[in-house]
Design a protein around this nucleic acid. Structure first.
Length: 927
RNA sequence: GGGCGAUUAGCUCAGUUGGUUAGAGCGCCGGUUUCACAUACCGGAGGUCACUGGUUCAAAUCCAGUAUCGCCCACCA
């Protein structure tokens, strides 16, 4: 070879080059092909707001690993990328930017103005995540990239809405919803996050009226008392029998409110009486409904106290809390204050405390869809296609969730998203359309800045396009519903909408159902289940065969990764430091059965300083690079790969057997998504077997100069390396391609890229247990001899003489046949092998099976060191023998254990005894 | 409050249906720059498998309980 290869692998150089060449060659593209089976993954679309985080990096490394392997296996493999418009999150980001840069709020630029800015923002940042994925090496079909607000996708969303509405599942109704005062919108239960908060429990006395007893109630939210319209006690609570039906005086507001009997009150808690605020607590809302209690909204949509809060109107809800407490104290009605830890719902996007409020919204009844999804999750054998979960326990959680499903609040009071396809007639809606404060009616209707109240006369007309005229009054002045849909409504259609639905496209027919959905735990129900529901409903299929739940990535200390805490980890930092291949390797190596991964990166100021596991990946890259470098520099011209042992050389038989076994293990591990096993197995095979042993044994053969032997060893060296590169490619695409392209391989069939080369098949014929046993034996002998050398401080430059005293002719022959291996790898000048050899004077010694290994070292030997070594070995065997004797002396064991096990233990007992005797005599000799 | 998962070497983790002396990588200690690689090579030390009990001839592995950590679900004031 004339090529000059640097001694270190440089990822930067070849990553961008190869990526561009693959893409140019169209290797990422997949199109319906009747001659091949399809394999399809639609990626979970990242938010356009987002930058790649470690969870993404893990997820996409898995995607691409699976995708590349399937492609090599001959499937028409599609990995379809896309991004999510991510309503609230994106709008929040752009609003922040708007305020930061222009000092304006969304209301100042108006609906159109804001949406325009969001699109601009998306153009600028929306594709950033694609570039990041490319840097990781993801071989996705970029020509098919989809966005949840692109034209075709919008058509799918409208169609879905219309269809659900026709079923009567989507309706307009008033219910208790979660309101985020900061974002000014409804959010669903699934978007709230309970945070454990250290708060207080205030006990307040409500004076009785007309002979009714005083009632003490406890609350974590005293400000809500301003909206209390009742007090509830349990119907069977003897203490309160007399009080039910009477009234107490609500302090501060000086309003008489009734005492009602309701099961909700828990006699065990406090006084047994509970205050009821129907407008600000989901439970109280129910209680209020049962007893016809008035709803008084005291906290408004902006988180400020309303006019109904009397003297406290206009205060922030938390300021009001403080003042209410002061006022109650002054009135002598605050009887007790306890520390109280409790869960408080927060908006998961912005962290604001949720305000529960009764409100009219669009809802979807989920029962029909839940039933459909449930049928696909039963497990076991059935006619109905089943979605498999890995790990399976998440399927159980999903079923549980479906059993408790509640109506889904669909509408959001934001501007970025799919506007609800419902229209109202301005002429006949009466008071059903009311402008938001600060707008006059005409402007409000024009800007979509109004509230809809079906209860007050608005009549929604659901249609995918604006109707010409009102079906009731023929009025032509129609306005669209101001709200947009929950982002998850659109993402729920992802797998089939990205393949063309609602059009009956060839893509949809060919690639759907898709094969794999890889996701984190956080959106299993929120998203994954809803995709199963909608696919079942709209295309009568499951959306994917299997759901793979990947580990959550934590920091070194087992904490959540978070940018704001300075523990966020940018995977591209790892790529920059160690290369994409090393990063991928490191992520897969940590992706085992355990759910959470503690990523070992050291982070300072949100920048990765170092990562031991990525460094291990880099070292492995470099090892592979240098192994290839050695092969290329050692062989003569283009080599014809050799896949058989030919002359029967042990090393060849052994490495080919190991290769076949490795392929089997890799297939098994890949198919069951045990990625850490995949990397471990390949690491072991390439580093230990191929580099440490096979190449070392090949060196003397390459130097010996016999042309026939040379062709054999060169052929096997190249063949095994080439096969291993194929196995490694889905993990380390860049490095493997780079090496593979340079391999001096005489193969006319060779495709233009490793990424479209075929996946290796294990050769059953090559599996050779005898060869593996022989090698294991020789490795043990060689290691023992090396240990003696090392422990007795024999310099490596010193050539030693080795005496191998075999306990049987079989062992002697075994050694004799492979004398060269031992001599070469131990670094011995000469070896004596025989059954009748005795221990030379002043020698180091060791025992392997029935072989005694002696290294004569006249004058050099440190007698004390050697004696220490031997005693330690002897002690080890003594304790082993003691344990074994106990076992073999146990009648229960002899009687009940399988005879094979007993036999094995007896044999071991003999071997130990032989070793012990030999070691003992060596020690005696020394002394 | 209910459910689930985890606990194995200094660190991060493997350990498949119970059966040789519980493994790997990193780190540590000793040695080595002979022509693939010091991002390397050779060798070594290091574990009461969280704890307690049980089942079994035999338990890191199966069962029960305890502790610690984490996650999910839940309207308990």
């Amino acid at each position: 070879m004339t090529t000059e290869l640097p001694t270190k692998y440089d990822p930067k150089h070849c990553e961008s080059t190869w990526y561009a060449r693959w893409e140019e060659a169209g290797h990422f593209r997949a199109r319906p092909n009747p001659d091949r089976k399809p394999y399809c993954i639609t990626i979970p679309p990242p938010n356009v707001t987002g930058e790649l985080h470690m969870g993404h990096a893990m997820q996409h490394t898995i995607h691409d690993n699976v995708t590349r392997r399937k492609r090599m296996q001959g499937y028409e493999t599609l990995c379809l990328p896309g991004t999510d418009h991510a309503g609230i999150a994106t709008q929040m980001k752009v609003e922040e930017k708007l305020y930061r840069e222009e000092g304006k709020t969304r209301y100042e630029v108006g609906r159109e103005g804001l949406i325009e800015r969001i699109w601009e923002w998306r153009e600028e940042y929306g594709n950033a995540i694609y570039d990041q994925l490319r840097k990781l090496g993801c071989s996705y079909d970029w020509e098919r990239s989809r966005f949840t607000l692109d034209d075709g996708y919008v058509a799918a969303v409208l169609k879905a809405f219309e269809s659900f509405h026709e079923h009567g599942w989507i309706y307009r109704g008033t219910r208790m919803i979660n309101w985020c005062p900061k974002c000014g919108t409804v959010i669903s239960d699934l978007e709230t996050e309970e945070r454990l908060t250290q708060g207080k429990l205030w006990h307040i006395r409500y004076p009785g009226l007309d002979g009714a007893p005083d009632v003490t109630v406890a609350t974590t939210r005293p400000e809500t008392m301003l909206g209390d319209t009742g007090v509830a006690v349990h119907p069977s609570d003897a203490r309160w029998q007399e009080a039910v039906g009477r009234q107490v005086l609500l302090p501060l507001m000086e309003r008489p409110i009734p005492i009602v009997a309701d099961d909700y009150a828990d006699p065990e808690m406090g006084s047994g009486a509970v205050k009821v605020t129907p407008a600000h607590d989901p439970n109280d809302y129910e209680v209020g409904a049962r007893h016809d209690l008035v709803q008084i909204v005291v906290i408004g949509f902006d988180g400020m106290m309303t006019d109904h809060a009397g003297a406290w109107a206009g205060l922030d809800r938390y300021e009001c809390r403080k003042q209410v407490i002061v006022a109650l104290k002054a009135a002598g009605l605050l009887v007790q204050i306890d520390d109280h830890e409790h869960a408080v719902p927060h908006h998961d996007k912005c962290g604001t405390v949720i305000e529960p409020l009764p409100m009219e919204q669009w809802f979807m009844n989920m029962e029909g869809l839940a039933a459909k999804a449930r049928a696909h999750l039963q497990g076991g054998r059935t006619e109905i296609p089943q979605v498999r979960y890995q790990p399976d326990r998440y399927r159980g959680y999903a079923l549980e969730w479906l059993d408790n499903i509640r109506d889904w609040a669909l509408s959001r009071q934001i501007w970025w998203g799919h506007r609800i396809p419902a229209w109202y007639c301005v002429d006949c809606s009466g008071d059903g359309l009311t402008p938001l404060s600060g707008y006059d009616r005409d402007q409000a209707l024009k800007d979509g800045a109004f509230r809809v109240a079906v209860e007050a006369g608005a009549r929604p007309i659901v249609a995918t396009r604006q109707p010409q005229a009102c079906p009731d009054c023929d009025g032509t002045h129609l306005v669209q519903d101001p709200d947009v849909l929950d982002t998850w409504f659109s993402s729920a259609l992802w797998p089939f909408a990205t393949l063309g639905w609602p059009e009956p496209t060839p893509d949809l027919a060919y690639f759907h159902p898709t094969d794999l959905m890889i996701t984190g735990r956080d959106i299993l129900h929120l998203w994954v289940l809803r995709m199963i529901m909608t696919a079942s409903e709209f295309v009568d299929q499951i959306p994917f065969q299997q759901v793979l739940i990947h580990p959550t990535i934590l920091t070194k200390d087992g904490k959540r990764m978070s940018k704001s805490l300075g523990t966020g980890l940018n995977p591209l930092d790892l790529v920059r430091l160690y290369g994409a291949d090393a990063t991928r390797y490191s992520l897969l190596a940590q992706c085992g059965a355990t759910q959470d991964v503690r990523f070992d990166a050291q982070i300072e100021d949100n920048v990765v300083q170092a990562s031991a596991s990525a460094e291990a990946g880099r070292n492995f890259c470099n090892k592979l690079w240098n192994a290839a470098r050695y092969v290329m520099l050692s062989v003569d011209g283009n080599v014809t790969p050799v896949a058989s042992a030919g002359t029967g050389e042990l090393a060849d038989r052994w490495i080919l057997s190991r290769l076949a076994q490795t392929i089997r293990s890799i297939d098994e591990a890949q198919d069951s998504f045990r990625f850490s096993d995949v990397t471990r197995t390949l690491h072991e095979f390439l580093w230990r077997d191929y580099c440490d042993w096979y190449i070392e044994l090949a060196k003397p053969r390459l130097l010996s100069g016999q042309s026939q032997g040379r062709a054999q060893v060169e052929g096997v060296l190249v063949y095994v390396l080439e096969q291993a590169l194929r196995l490694m490619h889905p993990i380390m695409p860049f490095l493997t391609e780079e090496i593979w392209q340079q391999l001096p391989l005489a193969d006319p069939e060779r495709p233009d890229s490793l990424m479209i080369a075929s996946w290796p098949e294990p050769d059953a014929e090559a599996i050779d247990m005898a060869a593996e046993a022989d090698m294991t034996f020789l490795q043990a002998v060689i290691s023992s001899a090396r240990t003696i050398r090392s422990e007795l401080n024999v310099p490596q430059s010193k050539k030693i003489h080795l005496v191998l005293a075999a306990g049987s002719t079989a062992s002697a022959e075994r050694l004799e046949t492979h004398r060269d291996y031992v001599q070469g790898l131990v670094g011995a000048e000469s070896i004596d092998i025989g059954t009748d050899l005795t221990q030379p004077a002043s020698s180091g010694s060791a025992v392997v099976g029935d072989i005694e290994i002696y290294v004569p070292l006249e004058g050099l030997i440190d007698t004390d060191a050697e004696a220490r070594r031997l005693r330690k070995e002897i002690d080890k065997f003594l304790s082993l023998i003691t344990a074994l004797d106990k076992k073999l002396g146990n009648e229960g064991f002899l009687k009940k254990a399988p005879t094979a096990v007993v036999e094995k233990e007896r044999l071991r007992r003999q071997e130990y005894d032989t070793s012990l005797q030999k070691l003992t005599s060596s020690l005696e000799m020394l002394e």
